[in-house]
Structure formats: C-alpha cells, structure tokens
C-alpha cells in the first residue's frame, strides 16, 4: 500500500502522446547534432589536407612536339618555386593522374593526343609560412607565360564557412526543437493540472505543499523525458547507420565525405550521446514540469 500516487498521471490516456512527441523532438535534435558532428569532422580533414598547400597550373603543350618543351617549362617553374622562401615542396602531378581525373568525362584511353592538358604542380608550404601570392604569380608568369597560382586556402575558407553555417543551422534546429519540447511539457503539465484540479484542491486543503503535488508531475515528466529520449536516440542512430550503409554502397561522389568512416570514428561520441541525450531530455522535462506546477499553483489559494 501507499505506493499509489493521488493523481495517477501515468493513467491519463491524453498524456501518452508526450513520450512520442519528446521522441520526435529528440530524433530531430540528434540528427541535427549528428549532422553538425559529421560536417565538423569532414572540415577538419579537409583543413588538414589543404592547409598550407597551393596549386600551380601551367598551360599544356599541344601535340608530341611539345612534350619536351612542356617538361622544360615544368622544370623551370619547379626550380623557381623551390627557390622561393616558405615553400617546402613542389611536385608536378603525374600525367597519368591527370588522365584518370579526366577519365569520367572522356573515357579510358580516349584522351586525344593533341589535347592541351595543363600541368599541375602541388606545392606545400613550410608550416606557418605566408606567401605573397601576387608576387609569386608575377615571378612565375615571368618565366612561364600563362602560369597561374591558385590558393587552396581560399577554397578551403569558403568550404569552412559553408560548414560553419551548416553547423549553425544545426544548432538553431536543436535550440528550436528543445524549445518546442519544453513547450509541449509546459502545455501537458498545465493540462494535467487543470484536469486534476479537484484532487489537487483536496490535497491542498488537507495540508499538501505545492512541492508534494509537483513531485507527482516531476516523476512523470522525468519518466516521459527518459523514455522519449531513448526512443529518439535509438531511431536517430538507426537512421544515421542506414545513411552510412547507403553512403558506403553508393560511394558518395563528394570529395572527402566518407560517411561510414566518420561514423565509426565517432562511435564513442554516439555511445556518450546515446546515454547523455535521454538523461538531458529527462532532466529538462523534470525541471520544466516542476517550474510549471509551482508557478501555476502560486495562483490558487
């Protein structure tokens, strides 16, 4: 005996939708969070690969006769680059690599001999070095007309900016979803208070404190938050895992975005999140319910 609560909130059929709503919210928030994490990891890898690199492009020669000339111009450019302060390495991209890059468009072995394939030179900088790109461009064009320097940093910067925007949007989504979840709990708690108004008045009249009444809502909300959190996280994990499988099979044509690898890297993160998110959902629901009850009851005698 004495284990039954006076309000029996868990028997209210209208309240059964709460864990489902919380689950939906947690699902969306978790997906947004996972998206932010994946984008973050991808950007980190891009940054590592691209930071401190330049690409120099030389105009390609036409026909067999130009092979020797092209090689000479490449050597000139490479030696100029290596003499420049702050440059660590300068490595021409092998012609076979360039051909394989063009393969998707032209087909294997269909490369016309007289196609003016440009020469690309991968340049890496000394760690922390800053290069005057305008001066380098001018010097290079002086020895090899038509040479162009492209700074991968600019490209990277744009990508990073894009990634940060995506993460910001994910953050906003999580915030909105959390607010919506809080609103649901507030609404459901108020509905419960009004539905059980008579019992609550009785409890007050026989000497119950607001906290005594709040406790029943808080226990109920904690349970709903935990349950909804667990369901939401499990569904989100399943969704991301399914995305990973699909991405693995289809091999996303987006440079650097290899989903399954990043997911396994963040396995620890998933485990931590899987435990943490339901707990956070439960605590938020609890706090919201308590605050709502205490504030609402302050208005009754």
């Amino acid at each position: 005996m004495f284990h039954r609560s006076e309000l029996q909130l868990n028997r209210d059929t209208a309240r059964r939708f709460i864990p489902l709503m919380v689950a939906a919210m947690v699902y969306l928030a978790t997906l947004a969070l996972a998206g932010a994490v994946v984008v973050g990891a991808t950007v980190d890898r891009w940054s590592e690969g691209l930071r401190g690199t330049l690409t120099v492009q030389l105009p390609g020669g036409r026909g067999d006769a130009s092979v020797a000339e092209t090689a000479a111009r490449t050597d000139t450019a490479v030696s100029l680059l290596l003499e420049t302060a702050g440059i660590a390495t300068a490595q021409p991209v092998p012609a076979s690599d360039l051909e394989s890059l063009l393969e998707p468009w032209l087909g294997k072995g269909n490369l016309p001999a007289d196609l003016p394939v440009p020469v690309l030179i991968d340049v890496t900088l000394d760690p922390g070095a800053r290069i005057d790109l305008v001066a380098l461009q001018r010097n290079l064009a002086g020895v090899v007309p038509g040479a162009r320097v492209s700074d991968n940093g600019v490209y990277l910067e744009r990508l990073v900016r894009l990634a940060r925007s995506v993460q910001l949007v994910a953050g906003v989504v999580m915030l909105l979803v959390a607010l919506a979840a809080v609103a649901i709990i507030v609404f459901a708690t108020r509905a419960g208070l009004s539905m059980h108004r008579e019992t609550i008045e009785l409890l007050h009249l026989i000497g119950a404190r607001d906290a005594y009444i709040a406790r029943q809502f808080v226990t109920n909300a904690l349970w709903h938050g935990l349950l909804g959190g667990i369901i939401g996280v499990v569904l989100a994990a399943a969704t991301v895992a399914a995305l990973g499988v699909i991405a693995g099979e289809v091999a996303l044509p987006v440079a650097g975005l290899r989903l399954p690898e990043q997911l396994s890297i963040s396995l620890v993160l998933w485990l931590a999140g899987g435990l943490l998110i339901p707990v956070v959902a439960g605590l938020v629901a609890m706090g919201t319910a308590r605050l709502t009850v205490m504030r609402t009851l302050r208005q009754v005698l």
């Binding site: 004495f2 039954r4 006076e6 008579e198 009785l202 409890l203 026989i206 000497g207």
Partner: peptide, 26 residues
C-alpha cells in the same frame, strides 16, 4: 471528496502521508 482509485485505508491515511508520517505508524 474521496480519491476513487485509492482504498478506504489509503484515503484515510492521506493527511498523515502528506504530513510525512511513517508508514508503520499510519
């Protein structure tokens, strides 16, 4: 104003329970 899902015993015990009395005493 009895609570319908509580037994007679639990209903009568309610004021003591709310006041924090021990179960055995109640």
């Amino acid at each position: 104003r009895l609570i319908n899902h509580l037994t007679a015993l639990e209903n009568v015990a309610l004021p003591l329970r709310i006041a924090g009395a021990k179960k055995e005493q109640i």
